[in-house]
């Protein structure tokens, strides 16, 4: 009896502590939210909205509205919805391709030893530490040369942009390989005894067991690509192909940050990630190694 009360009180305590942390963590997010409903385009740091209005949201969503002061119809010249779709498309495709490359490479590293494996591993993670900002000129030139041979991959194309993002794979290869290493060797051995081919082991056994980590990588890549504005701003000029993050920068100029619209754009931009996470949560939390092999 006492044990149960003790357990319950610990549970409630931990819940409260978590709630407290959550509120602190979401504190700035609250400000961003109320700023998006503020009509005077300033950052609201009081606790409530001063002038409530949906104008910022209408601007972002491409709905015309009437400016109350000048009585003119305001229509955003920026096709935010198109940019939003572009970003989602690019982020998902990149994440999928990264997963493809990562899992294959991680499996190769996990299962086989070959000449130069150690050095390959080391160079994978060390060379990626080079600040990518400085490599932009090189990538720009690469894509522009590539574009003259293969128009699909040149500057100002989504394919070229996705290609650039594939530079983040080495890190995730490490991550995936680490996860593979935690899969008990006995499973793999059992499969080999059963006469499975390498690819089957990869596809039917390792991948499903590694699902939680694959979900994590998908989300991480998606977020990184979706929020990135440096690379698309340099590589893409066609307004129909721009991404959402670059578009948001429109609202920031030296003196005049249009906070309201910026905040609304941010919330819109955060939605896909939150939705993806909510959907994929259940894959994240299944203990899939349960009972598969008796140790």
């Amino acid at each position: 009896m006492l044990n149960r009360i003790k357990k319950k009180s610990i549970a409630i305590c931990s819940n409260l502590i978590l709630l407290f942390f959550l509120l602190i963590v979401l504190y700035p997010v609250y400000f961003i939210m109320i700023t998006s409903f503020e009509s005077s385009d300033t950052l609201v740091i009081e606790f409530s909205v001063q002038n409530f209005s949906l104008d910022n949201w209408k601007y972002i969503l491409g709905i015309d509205y009437i400016n109350t002061v000048t009585q003119e119809v305001v229509r955003s010249p920026y096709p935010f919805i198109i940019w939003f779709k572009n970003s989602i498309k690019i982020a998902s495709i990149t994440a999928a391709i990264v997963l493809f490359i990562c899992t294959l490479a991680a499996y190769g590293l996990y299962r086989f030893t070959f000449f130069g494996k150690k050095y390959f591993l080391i160079s994978l993670i060390i060379l990626q530490m080079f600040p990518s900002m400085m490599g932009m000129v090189a990538l720009f030139l690469l894509l522009s040369k590539l574009g003259t041979f293969f128009p699909w991959f040149g500057l100002d194309t989504h394919a070229g942009l996705i290609l650039t993002y594939l530079g983040m794979t080495p890190f995730f290869i490490w991550l995936t390989k680490s996860y593979f290493s935690t899969i008990p060797k006995s499973i793999v051995e059992a499969a080999m005894i059963d006469g499975c081919k390498e690819f089957t082991i990869f596809y039917s056994i390792i991948l499903p067991l590694a699902l939680p980590m694959l979900v994590v990588i998908f989300i991480l890549v998606f977020i990184t690509v979706f929020s990135d504005f440096v690379i698309p701003s340099i590589l893409i000029k066609d307004p129909k192909l721009l991404t959402f993050a670059v578009g948001m920068r429109e609202f920031i100029s030296a003196y005049d940050i249009r906070w309201g619209k910026f905040a609304a754009a941010t919330i819109l931009g955060g939605l896909p990630i939150v939705i993806i996470f909510m959907i994929t949560q259940k894959f994240l939390v299944q203990g899939l190694t349960k009972g598969s092999v008796k140790e």
């Binding site: 010249p77 920026y78 932009m136 000129v137 720009f140 030139l141 522009s144 500057l155 701003s233 340099i234 000029k237 066609d238 307004p239 670059v246 920068r249 429109e250």
Partner: peptide, 19 residues
Amino acid sequence: AATVDNTVEQFKTNALGGK
């Protein structure tokens, strides 16, 4: 007319690639 953020820096970078 295209909207290009950070116009001058982009102009310089593009010039390096002949564009």
